[in-house]
Design a protein around this nucleic acid. Structure first.
Lengths: 256, 256
DNA sequence: TTCATTTTGATTGATTTTGATCGATTGCAA
DNA sequence: TTGCAATCGATCAAAATCAATCAAAATGAA
């Protein structure tokens, strides 16, 4: 492991736990205390953390600053997103037909499909998926037509929805921006919400891919109630409290 | 493996992992450490990565920049194609509606549109155009839905054609693989031929973008006769002989 | 082909990083 | 307060990595 990776990891751990001991870092990173101490003094000089006796801590102001400058959240999530996508990929069987939503997690799923040679039928509204999924020559691939939302690069509107309704698929993989028991699945854009809802309605098995940060958040537009979801794949950061709460509503949650 | 391929692979690995060690690169690329180090210093000088002790890392800003140009790099158009595209762009007026075909020359046109701020309505069957054209926030952008041909990354088939027929546009920009007075416009794939023909039929002004090497060539499937074309933009290499021949058939040829 | 140029891999000594040691310092409890 | 264990910083040697050099191999041009 490179020194820079170690520093990154230390910062990630601090972002989650606020404080961490030198001992713990030794165990996790498998290096000597001397190395950890050197790392911590170095990071302290860069104003990224504060040293304490026996470890280090991070203040809220530094934390915010760090998040802003390095967009740490996105990076941290990316590893989790890959794991979530990998689990989703594990659900696939040869000759499955899928609808794949736009979004970063689903994009990872598309990448895995592109790297595989599994024969599949894939339908998507994400134009960005096209390049990476077409590496897999076994895929029969459909893009939904319609107006392209410029910031998500995905097609929306009645054209896309009408076309989507002509399909029936085994599985739908949908991303969301918020998910609660009360409000179900939510997303900020109405048109996105509508096409996501249609995706769920044309599939036999409806799977939501989302990192744990989206739980207990509510975005402006509802996609669908929880009852329209068969399975949620998320990361290990999801607390048992939410996990149990969703289980009681018959939603299967897979934490990877 | 060529040095340039190695560099490409290194960058791809860095895009995935943020960092990578010299050792790992040796294993993956099967070359000595000295070679890897030389590659890394070279790439660092090109500002494509940052060296660290034991490996290299990539910053977010570089990553974004690299990702943006990544897809386009492979399809880097020749000088002639760029000039042809520039001339085509010169034909555009604000609030024009266009159909743009798939292909390298038309992709270059899309790039010019993406770099401009001209308000336009653009319809295309080329999924690859999406990323680059959406930089221009003044563009209302539609992608034709349908099955995606994996090698051209463009939608074809009845779905795409039906959707296309619902539009009426000012201009169509179409690429071809062969063009003669007798056989008109030709291309190797039947489905591509059909959608190209439909593109010509829904536009008021029908413009063919093609480099001069396509003249006097005939591909397997006919798109349309010459009479369905209003203007051809090509390069200066086109001989006067062909130029005159086409002029006699009322086709305007623009050599740039 | 032959010759010049470029690229690569191995070697060397220099530099950086790491882990262990040890005395000094700190925090905590009696 | 004192005593004690945990932690720290400084130092040094070992290990890893690096840059520089040179010869072999690959490539390209004549």
């Amino acid at each position: 492991m490179l020194a820079i990776d170690r520093h990154e990891k230390i910062m990630q751990l601090l972002m989650k736990n606020k404080t961490i001991s030198v001992k713990a870092l030794c165990d996790i990173l498998q290096v000597s205390e001397a190395t950890i101490r050197r790392d911590l003094t170095l990071l302290e000089n860069e104003n990224k953390l504060e040293r304490t006796h026996g470890g280090a801590s991070i203040s809220d102001s530094i934390k915010l600053n760090y998040e802003a400058t390095f967009d740490q959240k996105e990076l941290m999530a990316s590893d989790e997103k890959r794991r979530i996508a990998a689990r989703a990929f594990g659900l696939l069987k040869p000759h499955d037909s899928l609808v794949i939503d736009s979004g970063t997690t689903t994009l990872e799923l598309a990448r895995l499909i592109g790297e595989s040679t599994m024969p599949l039928l894939v339908i998507t509204n994400a134009t960005t998926i096209s390049t990476i999924i077409s590496r897999n020559k076994q895929v029969e691939f459909y893009v939904l037509g319609g107006r392209v939302r410029l910031n998500t690069q995905s097609t929306v509107g009645t054209m896309a929805i009408d076309m989507l309704k002509r399909f029936n698929t085994n599985k739908a993989f949908v991303g969301v921006n918020g998910i609660t028991v009360e409000n179900g699945l939510t997303t900020p854009d109405l048109e996105e919400a509508e096409i996501k809802k249609t995706m769920l309605s044309v599939a036999e098995e409806r799977i939501v891919l989302t990192d744990s940060t989206k739980f207990q958040k509510v975005a402006r537009c509802q996609i669908a109630p929880l009852s329209m979801v068969d399975k949620i794949i998320t990361d290990m950061q999801l607390s048992n409290q939410y996990y149990d709460q969703f289980l009681q509503h018959d939603v299967l949650i897979d934490r990877v």
